Simulated scan of single mutants.
Amino acid sequence: MSDDNHTVPYPEASTEHPTLVIPGSGTGEGADAARPKRRRRRWPWVLLILVILLAGLVVAAEFIARSILPGTVRSLVIDQLDLPADQQLDVEAEGILLPQLIGGRLDTLHLSTDAVTLEGVTGAADVTATGIPLRGGDLGGASGTIRIDQAQFTTLLAGTDLPVESVAFEAPNATLGGSFTVFGTAVPISVTLTPGAVDGDLELTPVSLSIGGLDVDVDGVGGMLGSVGEDLTKPQRVCIADQLPAGLTLTSLEIVGSEAVIDIDVNGAIATDESLLEKGVCPRP
């Protein structure tokens, strides 16, 4: 080969002409380092966890409140009414308790028992109280129902002038069995009455009458039996306030099946006035 066509060498790298780097075309560690890292948003997850924990605490607190409240209320009622320590009494509160406890007042409480004895009369009872203050004060209101059987209804009428030795229910009436004395001889008598309530008193309206096993005219028997006959043949109002706490008022009474269903109204001040827990008083005749 001839030296006339010799190879010309590449020029050396010069700072006058730096190598250009096209953005985004780089690869490798240098490119990764140059690219800004995207920060991961963690706060929604943190917030969700806090909400879940808070909900769990609220549920736990509500559960604890519902576990403690019935026993506390039961103890207070038993103490106030001087009931036996082993008295069966179910307590149930309505609504979510925590806001009510914080506010210091329960919306509604239901109390029920299969058997409770008040002033010698035993029956099943259901009472609903509203606006119950937790820091002292009167109840917003309360009412209830007492159910008694035939034997207890007989006890309820024991203080009256009626010849009551037994009671038989046949809804809506009650038949009273007893006797009265005529010339030293006991004469059996049976009177069927429809019970009710008027102004807090028990009202008995006669329906039929039997003397010595014979049915007699209710309207015409008054003269035959004198004052006893008059009492048996006209509606009677019987005060039973002396057989109930003073804070309870009879509002209605009816025979349902084999029970006498007595509705009562409860004075809200019974929670603060101890005299309302004492036996009531009947006016003198």
Rank of each mutant, 00 (worst) to 15 (best):
S210C: 10
V261K: 14
L232C: 00
A186P: 14
S258H: 13
D219L: 15
T251K: 12
T155I: 10
V187H: 07
L250R: 03
G184F: 08
P172C: 07
G247D: 00
D263P: 08
D149N: 12
I189Q: 01
L202C: 06
D199F: 05
D199V: 08
V256G: 11
V187M: 06
S190K: 14
N173V: 09
D231R: 12
L193D: 04
G196F: 03
L193F: 15
G220L: 11
Q243S: 11
A168D: 12
L253S: 02
A246W: 04
V228W: 07
A171T: 11
V207P: 04
A241C: 12
V256Y: 07
A151D: 13
G229C: 01
V198S: 13
A197G: 13
L202E: 06
E254C: 08
M224I: 13
E230Q: 10
G257E: 06
D219C: 10
D161F: 07
K234N: 15
P206F: 00
P188E: 05
M224H: 14
V218R: 00
T155Q: 15
D231Q: 15
P206Q: 01
L232D: 04
V182E: 14
T160S: 15
D219M: 12
L157E: 00
L157K: 01
S208M: 03
V182M: 13
S208V: 05
V167I: 12
L250I: 04
V167F: 02
L209C: 08
I264V: 14
G184Q: 11
C239F: 03
D265R: 07
L253G: 01
G229Y: 05
K234L: 08
F183K: 13
D199N: 12
S258V: 11
F169V: 10
V266N: 03
D265Q: 11
I189S: 00
G223L: 06
P245E: 09
F153M: 14
D199P: 13
G247W: 03
D265E: 13
I211L: 09
T194K: 08
A151S: 12
A186D: 15
T181E: 15
T249V: 07
F180T: 07
F153E: 02
G200I: 02
V266C: 01
Q243N: 08
P206D: 02
A246Y: 03
M224R: 15
L225I: 04
A197P: 11
I240M: 01
G213P: 07
G220Q: 14
G229W: 03
A260G: 15
L202K: 03
T194L: 07
P163E: 03
L214P: 01
T233G: 03
D242E: 08
A174K: 00
I255F: 10
L204Q: 02
L162V: 03
V164M: 05
I264C: 02
F180H: 10
V261R: 13
G220E: 15
K234Y: 07
T155A: 12
N173M: 09
L176C: 04
F169T: 11
P206C: 02
P235D: 05
G257V: 06
D231F: 06
G213M: 11
V164L: 05
G223M: 06
L204R: 00
G223N: 15
Q236I: 01
P188Y: 04
D149E: 15
I148N: 02
A158F: 04
T194N: 09
L214D: 11
E165A: 10
T251A: 09
L232W: 06
T251L: 10
G257H: 05
G213E: 07
P235Q: 10
S227N: 11
L156N: 02
A151M: 08
L232Q: 01
